[in-house]
Amino acid sequence: MSAISPRRLKPRFDVNGWLFVGPALALIATFMVFPILHSFWMSFQTGLGVRLSFAGLKNTYRLFNDPLFFTALTNTFIFFLVQVPIMLTLALVTASLLNNPDLKFRGVLRTAIFLPCVTSLVAYSVLFKSMFVANGLINTTLIGLGIVDVGIPWMTDPFWCRTMIIIAITWRWTGYNMIFYLAAMQNIDRSVYEAARIDGVPTWARFLHLTVPMLKPVILFTTVTSTIGTLQLFDEVATITGGGSASGAAGPGNSALTLSLYIYNLTFKFAPNYGYAATVSYVIVFLVAVLSFLQFYAARERKA
């Protein structure tokens, strides 16, 4: 690790550097930064549709007095704190098991586990709804196995509704994150493992002390992107609960209302208030920025 990690920062002008990053930066400036600045400007305006007027910090004031915003914020954090660790651990464990060259049916297993994130959202939502309805497959199975006596109220109880959403996201994105780990594992020198194995280091210790440290850059990558993904969680809550439809709540008591769904509603479902929606968006930006900084910081510290 130490041979490759320290990067010399070069203060001098380096034409090569600019040539490599130039095209990407130009495109990002045009198609991301410019619209972002535009939406930042919009966050200081208020009104319905095109009847916008300058509002200064009125939107921020509204934000702090908006109970739905706080519901969305709380839900988003619950999803983030519970779901991201479960999913990434599962993905990492699965990837390292699949990386064993002696394992049979590797290709089939890999493909199977990757499948969920390919499945179209429409089929996915129809399926999950039908599995989790009161007398659906999940409850029938649980009752049949004697795990529960009465069906679990997935759609009518806030706790179970959130659990269902967490199951759904984990199901869909574990295989996706696994891909990044698998790819990174190919860059690890196999002989190190062999040496450790011959020295009698147990499997779990090899996993914790060899695999995990070597994958650190990619683990950081998946942590940051999963954080972003969860804080922007939209698809699952919009399609599995009624949150995306014209009439319908995002789960009982809005228990599955996320910040992104709220922004979406403010922009498209409700009488459109683009200014306020933009203000809520910047809350996400702020949160992700802080969390990512913490994650980078944590990853950096352990290097020493």
Binding site: M32, Y274, S281
Partner: peptide, 20 residues
């Protein structure tokens, strides 16, 4: 700065991007 652009929800950018 570039990483920050990842963090803004796309729904907030759609209208400016459409105008562009």
């Amino acid at each position: 700065l570039m990483l920050l652009t990842l963090m803004i929800p796309f729904a907030a950018l759609m209208i400016p991007l459409f105008m562009l």
